[in-house]
């Protein structure tokens, strides 16, 4: 029988498989293993991986760390110039604490991401090219340190892309990347 509403024949396991279906199984299997290998391999040879180090931190403590960082940073018209290679961003309803910031192109920074209240989304893109954008989740209780190197100078806009309350849509920040 070949009817999905009736019990199959007793020897259904041994029935031959159509030749083209067998070929398709091979193609689909190879593609499945191939895309796994590419994703896993890209963590080794690729330059864009959402991988960093996470530290548990009390939200108030993280807020203090951001405040200390802001003390140490130089204030300019375009925003804070970080004192070293670490850049702190504190997400809160409905503001990005620590932004705007001024960074140098071609220099690797450790971006510290954390939230003071609820979950937020760290979503960044250069002004003139909206299809270059990245999105990372930000938690209260975690400090996520991700290295980033902005290679092109320009203005990078940060919006929140996790619903964080009524004023969610107004949450906007900025990186100004200048020639290094």
């Amino acid at each position: 029988m070949s009817d999905p509403l009736e019990d199959p024949d007793d020897d259904w396991w041994n029935s031959p498989v159509n030749r083209r279906e067998s070929i398709w199984l091979g193609l689909a299997g190879a593609w499945s293993v191939g895309i796994f290998a590419w994703m896993a391999g890209f963590t080794q040879f690729g330059d864009q991986n959402p991988i960093g180090t996470t530290y548990d931190v009390d939200p108030e403590q993280y807020q203090e760390r951001v405040a200390e960082y802001k003390e140490a940073a130089e204030e300019t018209e375009d925003g804070l110039v970080p004192p070293g290679d670490s850049v702190y961003v504190g997400a809160m309803r409905f503001n990005w604490d620590g932004l705007p910031a001024v960074l140098e192109a071609g220099r690797e920074y450790d971006i510290h991401l954390g939230a003071y209240d609820v979950q937020h989304g760290f979503s960044v893109r250069p002004e003139e090219n909206l299809n270059k954008q990245i999105n990372l989740q930000v938690f209260p209780g975690s400090e996520w340190v991700i290295p980033m190197t902005f290679d092109e100078p320009g203005t990078y806009h940060v919006v929140c892309n996790e619903f964080c309350g009524q004023g969610h849509r107004t949450m906007h920040g900025r990186f100004t990347v200048v020639e290094g």
């Binding site: 330059d47 864009q48 959402p50 270059k132 980033m148």
Partner: peptide
């Protein structure tokens, strides 16, 4: 999609 990813600035450890 992977092309778009590789056009991004460098991110991650």
């Amino acid at each position: 999609n992977w092309y778009l990813v590789t056009q991004l600035w460098s991110i991650g450890a």
